[in-house]
Design a protein around this nucleic acid. Structure first.
Length: 200
DNA sequence: TATTAGATGGTT
DNA sequence: ACCATCTAATAG
């Protein structure tokens, strides 16, 4: 199998993210079609990257070869997942932000009891990670060689039009449109805190 | 539908 | 003291 995004250099991390839309993630009995992603370059020009300040125990996997999983905990209670991209030694990665559950809906519902409907099962990075049953225990596993719980496979059919915009939740680098999503897809996360909130 | 605050813990 | 977030509660 060829992975269009796997061999792209970190300098093209935005393209890697864009072409990852429509791919399918299989993990722990659930299959998800990716509908929203964000690129993080790690080239030093991206202050929003977790690797911007250099290598630490948390971000170490991002400095390795492409195709591995970077999982981190956020706000104390949620986890988000990235797929490492770019050449070895450069910490580029793509954050998986949302997807549509296409198989294993019952299993996903069981993991996401708070979901209001099936569109909401994976409509956000924390939600998606939870629906797939991925946790920090899966940090550093491969998504391309079948040895880990997460496997990624090419799109089925047409992906459809793609839109781009600023990344969500980052307080810097609002100038780059490195968030990509499938146009008009109902499973794209509705979270839109682009502008800083007013102070009390 | 839109907006807001609270939860909660690793990382720097 | 931050956060690549989510949910429940509130107001309209």
């Amino acid at each position: 199998m060829t992975y269009a995004w796997l061999d792209l250099p970190a300098a093209k991390i935005d393209e890697a993210a864009r072409v990852m839309l429509g791919w399918r993630l299989t993990a722990n009995g659930v299959v998800v079609r990716i509908t929203e992603v964000e690129a993080y370059s790690g080239l030093g020009a991206d202050p929003a990257s977790h690797a911007h300040r250099g290598r630490t125990p948390r971000n170490a996997v991002m400095f390795g070869p492409a195709g591995f999983l970077y999982v981190y905990q956020i706000y104390g209670m949620y986890q988000c997942m990235n797929i490492v991209c770019g050449e070895q030694g450069v910490a580029a990665a793509v954050l998986l932000r949302a997807g549509e559950v296409v198989e294993g809906v019952e299993t996903a519902r069981g993991r996401r009891p708070g979901a209001r409907n099936d569109r909401d099962l994976g409509a956000g990075p924390g939600k998606l990670t939870r629906a797939l049953g991925i946790s920090k225990a899966d940090y550093g596993t491969s998504v391309v060689d079948g040895t880990g719980p997460l496997t990624i496979t090419p799109p089925v059919g047409e992906v459809g039009p793609v839109e781009a915009g600023p990344r969500v939740g980052v307080t810097s680098a609002h100038d780059v449109a490195w968030r990509f999503w499938v146009k008009d897809d109902p499973t794209v996360s509705s979270y839109r805190r682009h502008a800083p909130r007013r102070q009390k």
